[in-house]
Structure formats: C-alpha cells, structure tokens
C-alpha cells in the first residue's frame, strides 16, 4: 500500500506493508537520521515529532502517519545545532546515538512547556535513555539552553 506523509515539510509517497513501523518506513525512505535502538518502545532513540508532538517511531504504525506531518532531527536542524552547542559546552554528548531523539524531545518540550521546572524537565525527558552521560551534564545543558532564550 502507498501512504503519503509530509516529512520535514515535504510530501512523500511511500510504499509500505500495513504492519510496518514508522521508524523502518522513514529509514527505508532515506531518513537514516532517525535511529533504531531497542525497538520495544523503551529507549527513546527513535523519537520523531508527529504534528509537533514527540512519539516513538518504533511503536507507531506507519500507516497512521498518512496525512500527518513528521519531523525528524533534520527538520529542526538549525534549532538542534543551537542546542548542540549547549551540549558540547557541558560535555553532555559522547557516543551521540541517543542525540537525535533526545534533542527532538527537548525541542518539543521547549515548545510545549513554558518555563519548566527542574522536575518537569526530568519528567519530560525520562523516556530518553543515555548510557554515556549519566544525565546530569545533559540537564545542565538543557537548563542553559532554556535560560538563553530569557537572557
């Protein structure tokens, strides 16, 4: 079957099987910036935005993306680069595998929550696992990134 999905602002018609998960559909279409991690919905690596809200593409049927707008990290490249500067300053990135899903979730949080508390930040990011950083440096980077907008 064919589905038409708007990916990073561009309409794409893609051949899929009805049981295909969105992560595989996106990667098969060349969007390899969407990473495939645990494939069980636990790690958050495969996060993309569906109409601006974060979802796990490994647990979302591709057929349900028909007519919707999907944003990968490439779709918010400029904002992601800005956030990456804060990560780098705090040494909050190591292997980088979780970074696309992590950065997308941070950007979605910034759009959804106004002036989030430390607890709200940790809560929102709880589903993005990182095996390198221990999270503290990431949280410093997020706090600095959010505060920069208010400076």
């Amino acid at each position: 079957m064919i589905v038409t999905i708007t990916i990073n602002g561009k309409k794409e018609s893609l051949q899929i099987e009805p049981g295909d998960m969105l992560v595989d559909t996106l990667r098969n279409a060349g969007h390899v910036e969407v990473k495939k991690g645990c494939d069980t919905g636990n790690c958050g690596v495969c996060t993309v935005l569906l109409d601006g809200k974060p979802i796990r593409s490994c647990s979302f049927l591709a057929v349900r993306a028909e007519g919707h707008e999907i944003t990968t990290i490439q779709g918010v490249a400029e904002e992601a680069r800005r956030f990456a500067d804060f990560l780098n300053r705090e040494g909050a990135d190591q292997c980088g595998f979780c970074a696309p899903g992590f950065a997308l979730t941070v950007i979605a949080m910034k759009r959804e929550l106004k002036n989030p508390t430390e607890e709200e930040i940790r809560h929102y990011l709880a589903g993005n696992l990182c095996r390198c950083t221990g999270y503290e440096s990431q949280h410093r980077a997020i706090r600095n990134y959010l505060e920069a907008d208010h400076a």
Partner: peptide
C-alpha cells in the same frame, strides 16, 4: 500514568 516509560510512548 506519568511514570510509564516516556511522554512519547504515552502519546501512543
């Protein structure tokens, strides 16, 4: 509900 995995999965 808010401790179940993450916001992304809870949106599904």
């Amino acid at each position: 509900l808010s401790h179940i995995v993450g916001v992304q999965l809870r949106a599904t």
